[in-house]
Each structure stands twice: as C-alpha cells, then as structure tokens.
Amino acid sequence: MVHWETVSSLATGVGTLVLAAATFASVRSANRAARVAEESLLSGIRPLLVPSRPEDVTQQVSFADDHSVRVPGGAGTAEVTDEAIYLTLSIRNAGSGIAVLHGWRFDPTTALRWQERPSAESFHRLTRDLYIPAGDLGFWQGVLRHPTGDESDPLRDRIVARERIILDLLYSDYQGGQRIIGRFSLLPDGEGGWLASVARHWNVDRPDPR
C-alpha cells in the first residue's frame, strides 16, 4: 500500500528544501549585486593624492601664527625657526572624489623601503581639515611648535643637512571613509628648494592594492 501521508510529507520536505535553496541563491545574488553597487559608488568618490606638476601655479600657504610660504608646483617647503618647524607640500588630487586631509607624521627613516602600514593613531591631527577637489590642485601644511624633542630633533637635523624627508599623510573621502595613508618625500633640488614625490599608498579601511 502507498502511504500517502508519508509521500505527502516527503513532497512537502522536498518542496521546502528547493524553496530554501532558491531563497539562498537569490539572497546571495542580491548581496553580490549590493556589494558591486557599493564598490561602484565608493569608487566614484575615492580620492588619490599625488605631488602636483612642476607647471602648476605657485601657492601661498599661511600658518596660524602668520608665517607664510610660497610653494611651487611639484615641490614643497621645509623651514626651521626658533619657534617652529614648518612643512608644506603642493599636491594634486588624481582621484574621482574630494580628498579631506586629516593628519600627518614624520618618518625618521632615511631610505624608502617596504614596511607595514603606519598606525592611523600615530598621526598629528591637523588643526583644520584641508579639502582638495577631484582633479584639482591643493596643498598640505604641517607644523611642530616646539622644535626640540624626540621627533623634532631628527626632523630639524634632516632639514638643516638637506637630506630626504619622509612624510606620511592621512586623508579620506568627504564622508570620512576610504581612509588612505600616502607616503611622500621631500628631496633637496640643489637650488635651495625641495622637490615632492610619492612612494606608496596604504588603504586603512579597505584591503591594500598589493
């Protein structure tokens, strides 16, 4: 005899399993589509800072204590006074979204080499956010008000001896996400100035590109 109750139960179970599999596949596909859409949206507002071009205009950069410098395209400045150490970079946003500069740090190493990404907590916070529109020119400025100490001494010595200065800049998109650390250098140009270059970028909130 055919046990119709058993057959009915088995059919119901198979139907439920098929429905569950279809639901899982649908949800997985929807999640994948959502991730693709999110990545597409983020790429549309992603900044990327690089040194400006030598033919870019010279910018006037002023500090809170009324100290000011002129920063040529493709370059930066590094000055030591009795009151402070002043640093600037002329930079351009090669990305597709507005860049917001948040902080900086001086790396005491003298040569560019592979190393782990610096901690975002090790950066000096800027007293004001600096914004650089996509595809446009801007600048970064940093200052140490007490030009002596564990960090200031090697930086001051590097400036006076006119040796490579390695600077890390922390920036993000205009929403504060997609944080990036860019490793820049100031190199003496033989004429009393400093040329700007970039060596590496690290992603803070996303996987690194390498």
Rank of each mutant, 00 (worst) to 15 (best):
Q115C: 03
G97V: 14
P118V: 10
D150M: 06
E79V: 14
D150I: 13
G142E: 09
R128C: 10
E163C: 01
G76K: 01
I166F: 13
A99L: 10
T109Y: 00
V160F: 04
D107Y: 00
A94Q: 13
R164T: 15
E83S: 14
I165V: 15
S122D: 15
E151T: 15
T88C: 07
R117W: 01
D129F: 13
E116G: 08
L130W: 07
P133Q: 05
R158M: 00
R117Y: 02
S90T: 09
S119L: 11
G138D: 07
V80G: 03
A75E: 11
R162W: 06
I159R: 04
L130P: 04
L167C: 07
Q141D: 12
G149V: 12
L137D: 03
A161L: 12
T109A: 02
G95W: 09
A134F: 06
D150C: 01
I159S: 04
F106T: 00
D153L: 12
D136T: 14
V80M: 02
L155C: 05
V143E: 11
G142A: 09
E83C: 06
T148Q: 09
L170N: 01
H124Y: 15
W140K: 11
R125M: 11
R162H: 14
Y174W: 11
G74V: 07
Y174V: 15
F123M: 02
G142R: 08
H146I: 09
L137S: 03
R92Q: 13
S172C: 13
T109H: 00
G73R: 10
F139T: 07
I85M: 06
